[in-house]
């Protein structure tokens, strides 16, 4: 009795998840800029306003701080808002409500309240939108106790993790890479959840563990497929959640492969790769390492406009192939 599985795009999968959540629970509603008749800047909400009306698909003014605060207040008092940032970069305008309020309210009030808000952040480069519309800021929020931060990489996970986020009693931040919105993949019909805090081994291998996030999962898989011809067998872990991180899956994998590479689009320094590397170095997997840990992350620059430069500042498949080959062959 498996649910019917169809091919849906990542954006369609999210939209389907939101519709299911709203059908199941009248407390669930959507807020964001131009998510109504416009359908959202990336058409993720699409025509949901026709189905659920303007009272449950609420266009906000261009007020990220206020809008995020309204979502936090609604969540605090019994509703289940899903708040869409038009671009994840605009989280910078709302950090107060996310970091000081949503994340800490339960703690500050001694467990008397919870804040079941879901916030969605279209993130990442590759759209030619330049430096203020292309960032990957997930590590900023991953640094804050009280938040859960997830980065689904496939349509299947985008739907299942969003439904898990809506069901979660605590604030969940979802970073969705914009280049994934049109990527298609198998998605079961109906309700299901993919657990927050659990990584997924996308490809098993013996020679090297690549821990990747979001769109880099796909690039890592492409690199692994290419290196298979050279006899290099790569394990690809899709981290999926950056807080709370699934440490054990990574540790177990490194103990098996003895090599670790982290691939992520955000600026390399002080990011997810640093965290994963340090976590492994602190664990029993350290003794199994045969080579230094390698991080492939974004360049230490803002995202440039020029398409060639834009590609050059984030890891691409050939970069991953070259780095993985060197690491396995002991060139480094």
């Amino acid at each position: 009795m498996d649910a019917m599985v169809r091919e849906l795009s990542y954006a369609q999968a999210i939209q389907e998840a939101m519709a299911i959540a709203m059908d199941m629970d009248e407390r669930v509603f959507l807020m964001g800029e131009d998510i109504g008749v416009y359908g959202g800047a990336f058409q993720v909400t699409g025509d949901l306003v026709d189905r659920f009306g303007t009272e449950r698909v609420i266009d906000t003014p261009i007020s990220e701080l206020g809008g995020a605060g309204v979502a936090v207040g609604a969540a605090l008092t019994g509703m289940r808002p899903i708040f869409e940032f038009q671009f994840s970069d605009f989280a910078t305008l709302a950090m107060e409500q996310i970091v000081n309020q949503a994340a800490k309210m339960r703690f500050m009030l001694g467990g008397e309240v919870s804040v079941p808000v879901v916030m969605r952040f279209p993130a990442g480069s590759g759209t030619g939108a330049a430096a203020q519309h292309s960032q990957s800021l997930e590590a900023w929020l991953g640094h804050v106790p009280g938040l859960k931060v997830i980065q689904p990489a496939t349509p299947h996970d985008a739907k299942g993790m969003l439904l898990a986020a809506v069901a979660d009693p605590d604030p969940v931040m979802i970073f969705e890479h914009k280049l994934l919105y049109k990527v298609k993949g198998p998605v079961p019909e109906g309700y299901y959840t993919v657990p927050i805090g659990k990584a997924d081994i996308r490809r098993e291998g013996r020679d090297l563990t690549i821990v990747a996030t979001s769109i880099m999962v796909h690039k890592a898989l492409d690199a692994a497929a290419a290196l298979e011809a050279e006899g290099i067998d790569i394990e690809v872990i899709d981290l999926r959640t950056i807080r709370p991180m699934d440490k054990q899956t990574v540790i177990d994998s490194v103990k098996k492969t003895s090599r670790l590479m982290c691939v992520y689009e955000a600026v390399k320094t002080l990011g997810i790769g640093a965290e994963v590397s340090a976590m492994v170095a602190e664990s029993e997997a350290f003794d199994y390492l045969d080579a230094p840990i390698v991080r492939l992350g974004g360049a230490e620059t803002p995202i440039p406009y020029n398409p060639e430069l834009e590609k050059a500042v984030v890891p691409q498949v050939p970069d991953i192939i070259a780095a993985a080959r060197d690491l396995v062959k002991g060139v480094r």
């Binding site: 605060g69 309204v70 207040g73 605090l76 008092t77 409500q97």
Partner: peptide, 8 residues
């Protein structure tokens, strides 16, 4: 804004 959310 939190009060506005509670009012919503």
């Amino acid at each position: 804004p939190i009060a506005v959310g509670a009012a919503l």
